[in-house]
Design a protein around this nucleic acid. Structure first.
Length: 319
DNA sequence: TTGATTTGACCGCT
DNA sequence: AGCGGTCAAATCAA
C-alpha cells in the first residue's frame, strides 16, 4: 500500500554532516577508535585486493600461497580489531554509566515511545552515529568481498552525486547488521581512459556477523555499537569474556595494545611479501603499497599515545 | 516467478 | 524545519 501523505521536502543549503566524525575522543583520553578505523580500512583494502587478485591467480602453489597470505593479513587485522573493540566496549559501558543510560531512552524505552509503540507498529528509524563507522576511499566501492543489497539512494545536500545505501545480503537470514553507504567524490571525475578513475567514499557501519564474509569465519560482533544500540537483541548479544570495572582502563589498554601492534606488524610484513610475489598490476600494487605503508605507522602513533594517556593527552590531530 | 533495484514517503535527530 | 537514514510498494531484470 502506497503512502498517501505527501511531504516531500525541497533541498536547502546546509552543512554536510558526513564530513564530520563525531565522538573522536573518549573522556579519559584513551581513544583507540582512530586506530580501529585504520585497521578496518586495511581490512577493507585487503578484501578488495583479494576480490581483484584471486580470480586472476592460477591454481598453483603461488596462488595458494598468495591466498593464504591474504587470509593471514585479514586474520591479523581481525584479531587487532577485536582486541580494540573489547576495549572500546568497556569504555562505552563505563561512559554510559556516567551518563545515566541516556542512550537507552532513544531506543524506544521511554514512556512516550512505549505508548506510541502500543498504539501502532511504528517504524524504528534510528539515525546512525559516526562512532561505529569506518570510512574508505576507493575506485572500486563494490569489491570488498561481501555481498550487499541496495535499499536506498538519496541526494545529499551540496553533493553532486547521490548517496547509495546498502545492507548485508544476509541481513535477514543471519541477522547481519552491517551496512554501508557509497558516494562518488566530488573532486574525482573518471574519464574513459581510466587515467583518473572515479573515487568513491564508502562508509561502513557495524561489523559483519554473517558467516558468508570473505574469511568465511565468524567476525567479532560490533563492540562499539553500545553507543547506538543499547537495545540488545538475543541473536546479536555479545558478552565480553570478563566484566570490566569502572576504572583503570588505561592500564588494561596498555597491555592489550602491544598485542595489537604485533598483529598489525605481522599484517604489514605479509603485505610486503605479497608485493614481492605478485606481477605488476596497477590497482593491485597500489592497494598493497597502501597496506604495507599504513599499518605500523598508525599503530605506533597510538602506542605512543598510550604512554601519555595518563597525563591527559587528548588531541589526535588529522585522522 | 523471484530476487534486486528504484523511488517516494516516513521518521528520528539536530 | 529540514536533513539524512530507512521502509516498502512499484518496477525491473534474469
Amino acid at each position: 500500500m502506497k503512502h498517501n501523505n505527501s511531504n516531500k521536502r525541497s533541498s536547502s543549503v546546509a552543512q554536510n554532516p558526513s564530513s564530520v566524525t563525531a565522538d573522536q575522543c573518549s573522556p579519559d583520553g584513551c581513544d583507540h577508535r582512530p586506530a580501529l578505523r585504520e585497521i578496518a580500512r586495511g581490512q577493507s583494502l585487503v578484501a578488495q585486493l583479494r576480490a581483484i587478485v584471486l580470480p586472476a591467480l592460477q591454481a598453483d602453489e603461488r596462488g595458494d600461497l598468495a591466498a593464504q597470505m591474504l587470509e593471514g593479513i585479514l586474520d591479523c587485522s581481525r584479531k587487532a580489531t577485536s582486541q580494540l573493540q573489547l576495549l572500546l566496549s568497556s569504555q562505552a559501558r563505563d561512559d554510559g554509566k556516567r551518563r545515566g543510560n541516556k542512550v537507552s531512552s532513544s531506543d524506544g524505552c521511554s514512556s512516550k515511545a512505549d505508548d506510541e509503540a502500543n498504539a501502532k507498529p511504528l517504524r524504528q528509524h534510528k539515525r546512525r552515529r559516526f562512532g561505529d563507522s569506518m570510512s574508505l576511499e576507493t575506485p572500486v566501492p563494490h569489491y570488498d568481498g561481501h555481498q550487499w543489497r541496495k535499499y536506498g539512494q538519496k541526494h545529499i545536500n551540496n553533493s553532486q552525486h547521490p548517496r547509495s545505501y546498502y545492507r548485508c545480503t544476509y541481513r535477514q537470514e543471519e541477522k547481519c547488521k552491517a551496512t554501508k553507504t557509497v558516494q562518488q567524490r566530488e573532486d574525482h571525475y573518471g574519464n574513459s581512459n581510466g587515467d583518473h578513475p572515479a573515487m568513491y567514499t564508502v562508509v561502513y557501519f557495524g561489523q559483519h556477523t554473517c558467516c558468508k564474509g570473505p574469511a568465511g569465519d565468524h567476525v567479532v560482533v560490533e563492540a562499539s555499537q553500545v553507543s547506538t544500540e543499547s537495545q540488545s537483541q538475543s541473536s546479536s548479544s555479545y558478552a565480553p569474556p570478563a566484566a570490566h570495572g569502572d576504572s583503570s582502563q588505561c592500564s588494561n589498554i596498555s597491555v592489550t595494545c602491544s598485542s595489537v601492534v604485533a598483529e598489525d606488524r605481522q599484517a604489514s610484513m605479509e603485505s610486503n611479501k605479497l608485493l614481492d610475489m605478485l606481477p605488476a598490476h596497477d590497482l593491485t600494487t597500489d592497494v598493497l603499497f597502501d597496506l604495507a605503508a599504513y599499518a605500523p605507522l598508525d599503530l605506533d602513533i597510538n602506542w605512543e599515545m598510550d604512554a601519555y594517556a595518563h597525563s591527559g593527552f587528548e588531541k589526535f590531530g588529522d585522522w
